[in-house]
Amino acid sequence: MLINHDFSRRVTVTPEDHGWVPSPQRGVDRVMLDRIGGEQARATSFVRYLPDTAFPLHAHPGGEEILVLAGQFSEGERHYPAGWYLRNPPGSCHQPHSTNGTLLFVKLGQMRRQERVQLRVNTRDAENWLTREGMQVCPLFSDAHERVCLLRLSVGTVLAEPGLPGGAEVLIVEGSLIEGNSIHPQGSWLRIAPQQRLALMAGSDNTVLYLKKGHLAAAPQEPCL
């Protein structure tokens, strides 16, 4: 399966574009934002669990990155309400479930094989936030190849870079962004290809963004056939 698989192209997906489709697991639906492959795929998705839904124990050969957007996500006896950020490294296993239902932003098969550390960050904990260049930042993960954080912006704050060598992804967790004559509402996802310009402005106070930079340098730059 190929969805938005040419990483040399800019992609914008707004809530109006969300096409929910059932996964093979009953009670779990998803919006496929980009994807190369079948069930063992390089993929970025929104994933929605209905209440009392569970997956069997399974592994993620290429790792899994999760941001809990709503509800509560659970792994065994560990529970993560909205705001938690999780990284499960390549080769890790888990048995996810949700008692009350949850909405997740999920990236599969996009970690380097060398990554070994399981990471858990509560972005609702004020101690995990700092002020940097006039913005509130919650660092999530950083290495030589990618940087991941949440940003909280006041209305009118500009996020701009003339060219991103490794590209970027932006998910609007709360609030809105203005880009030229377009307003991107909460739930919009933008993928900026390597070397393209980033020029966005917060359209409302307390706009919260998931921002991931640098990781697209090693992504496929031609359509996969």
Score class of each variant (00 low, 15 high):
residue 152 R to V: 13
residue 132 R to G: 02
residue 92 S to W: 09
residue 17 D to R: 12
residue 113 R to Q: 14
residue 35 R to E: 09
residue 210 Y to A: 11
residue 47 V to A: 13
residue 162 P to D: 15
residue 203 G to E: 07
residue 120 R to Q: 14
residue 211 L to W: 05
residue 153 L to I: 03
residue 184 H to K: 04
residue 6 D to V: 03
residue 136 Q to H: 13
residue 11 V to C: 04
residue 152 R to Q: 10
residue 12 T to Y: 04
residue 82 A to W: 00
residue 169 E to W: 12
residue 116 R to W: 05
residue 1 M to F: 09
residue 63 G to S: 13
residue 56 P to Y: 11
residue 86 L to Q: 04
residue 184 H to E: 03
residue 114 Q to A: 12
residue 111 M to E: 09
residue 95 Q to R: 14
residue 124 R to Y: 09
residue 170 V to N: 04
residue 58 H to A: 12
residue 35 R to Y: 07
residue 131 T to W: 08
residue 143 D to N: 15
residue 146 E to H: 03
residue 150 L to P: 05
residue 81 P to F: 13
residue 58 H to V: 12
residue 196 Q to G: 02
residue 100 N to P: 01
residue 159 L to K: 06
residue 155 V to R: 10
residue 88 N to G: 02
residue 27 G to N: 07
residue 175 G to D: 02
residue 179 E to V: 12
residue 169 E to K: 11
residue 26 R to G: 06
residue 9 R to V: 07
residue 156 G to Y: 11
residue 154 S to K: 13
residue 106 V to Y: 01
residue 167 G to L: 14
residue 190 L to A: 05
residue 183 I to C: 08
residue 105 F to S: 01
residue 177 L to T: 05
residue 173 V to S: 09
residue 186 Q to K: 12
residue 149 C to R: 11
residue 179 E to S: 14
residue 42 R to C: 01
residue 154 S to V: 09
residue 161 E to K: 12
residue 155 V to Q: 11
residue 152 R to I: 08
residue 126 A to R: 12
residue 38 G to V: 05
residue 109 G to D: 09
residue 188 S to I: 02
residue 172 I to S: 00
residue 20 W to C: 04
residue 14 T to N: 10
residue 125 D to M: 02
residue 159 L to R: 10
residue 4 N to Y: 05
residue 113 R to M: 13
residue 131 T to L: 15
residue 33 L to Y: 09
residue 186 Q to I: 05
residue 124 R to F: 08
residue 161 E to V: 07
residue 119 L to H: 13
residue 15 P to R: 06
residue 169 E to N: 06
residue 46 F to H: 13
residue 168 A to R: 03
residue 64 E to S: 03
residue 72 Q to V: 13
residue 57 L to C: 07
residue 49 Y to I: 00
residue 64 E to Y: 03
residue 173 V to R: 06
residue 217 A to Q: 07
residue 72 Q to A: 11
residue 22 P to Q: 07
residue 180 G to A: 12
residue 64 E to Q: 15
residue 98 S to T: 07
residue 162 P to A: 15
residue 135 M to S: 11
residue 60 H to S: 06
residue 79 H to W: 05
residue 4 N to E: 08
residue 81 P to D: 09
residue 96 P to L: 01
residue 128 N to E: 08
residue 1 M to L: 05
residue 2 L to I: 06
residue 70 A to I: 07
residue 166 G to H: 04
residue 121 V to C: 09
residue 216 L to E: 00
residue 173 V to P: 03
residue 108 L to A: 08
residue 140 L to Y: 09
residue 183 I to L: 09
residue 52 D to T: 13
residue 83 G to S: 09
